[in-house]
């Protein structure tokens, strides 16, 4: 029921977000153009204005949806698997690691695909974070976040170093935007990468979400239920790293989507992952579509990196989550 409502909201969000932008194109013209490209009728727009809809807005809105969905699912999975309500790809260093991988490829010209590099960076950062957290003793949420912070800082510093050594002229500006998280460059290839990641990693995760419930009472309890705890944990974490890496490679590191949306969805449908994961995906998609629409239209004709929008909304909510955990420190 909730699912159906949210799916409709997502569909409406895509439909309306593509009608918003600096140029005066009416919603009817926008939809006419989209229908034309789907093989129905003629476009009501000139070739150029049709390009605005089909080459700029639609791929951008679709990328926002996929990235939002991917990050929200990643966050929900990480929260389950680390039993840490504060986990998200951003706080645990995955995003920074993925950024480092991507920047290294972009600037140093290492010959691997951008999403692959981002994935490797994300995996490496995640491994380091968990290693560091476990070397502090029993893995607790706070320790994991602290370890993630340390890994993030390291990855960011190395990223800055790479930029320092390689940037020429004013090319730093675009990299900076990208580090802050921006969907300005999202075109159809970005849509392909993001949706491929959803299909290859996101969908299997969502379908097997029930297993995550078994982690509710910890590793021993999960093992007693017949779950191969280590293999399951690393499979899920690798899948989230793949998901995060792909998303970072198209959008830079957008923070807080993975952290706050699963919490919001839990309030709606409860904590069972079979429902939580798909709905987090849908709500994440809706959220990022509108955050990006705000990013590209509020300060028109200039635009804001969408990561700033999500941080402005997300950071206070993160603070609330922290204070609710006060007693446990």
């Amino acid at each position: 029921m909730t699912g159906a409502v949210l799916a409709v909201v997502l569909l409406l969000s895509v439909t309306f977000a593509i009608t918003i932008g600096p140029s005066n194109i009416t919603p009817v013209e926008v939809w006419g153009s989209v229908l034309h490209h789907l093989g129905l009728g003629d476009s009501p727009l000139s070739l150029l204005r049709d390009g605005i809809v089909w080459q700029l807005r639609l791929p951008r809105v679709l990328t926002a949806a996929a990235v939002g969905a991917g990050l929200a699912v990643s966050g929900a999975v990480m929260q389950a698997i680390t039993r840490n309500p504060l986990a998200d790809p951003y706080l645990l260093g995955l995003s920074s690691g993925a950024s480092l991988g991507a920047v290294a490829v972009l600037l140093l010209g290492i010959a691997i695909l951008l999403p692959v590099a981002a994935f490797l960076g994300a995996m490496l950062a995640l491994g380091l974070t968990l290693l560091l957290a476990s070397s502090l003793g029993r893995i607790t949420p706070s320790r994991t976040v602290l370890a993630g912070l340390a890994v993030s800082a390291l990855a960011s510093a190395i990223t800055s170093l790479v930029i320092f050594w390689t940037v020429t002229g004013d090319s730093y500006r675009e990299i900076l935007n990208w580090l802050l998280g921006s969907l300005a460059g999202a075109r159809w290839p970005a849509v392909e990468i993001a949706f491929a990641a959803i299909l290859l990693a996101g969908l299997p995760i969502m379908l097997s979400g029930r297993i995550l419930d078994a982690f509710a009472f910890g590793d021993t309890s999960a093992a007693a239920l017949g779950i191969n705890v280590n293999r399951t944990r690393w499979t899920f974490l690798a899948a989230t790293a793949l998901l995060t890496g792909a998303m970072v490679s198209v959008s830079g590191s957008i923070g807080f989507v993975g952290l706050i949306l699963p919490h919001a969805v839990r309030l709606l449908v409860g904590p069972r992952h079979r429902a939580l994961l798909p709905l987090s995906a849908v709500v994440g998609a809706i959220f990022l579509i509108w955050a990006d629409t705000a990013a590209r239209s509020v300060f028109e004709p200039r635009e804001l990196p969408v990561g700033i929008v999500t941080a402005i909304i997300g950071a206070p909510i993160f603070a609330i989550l922290l204070t609710r955990r006060r007693s446990e420190a």
Binding site: R83, P85, D213, F217, G218, R266, G270, P271, R272
Partner: peptide, 10 residues
């Protein structure tokens, strides 16, 4: 187990 707890409101 002797003590098991969860953060999830199941």
């Amino acid at each position: 187990e002797q003590d098991s707890s969860t953060e999830l409101s199941l």
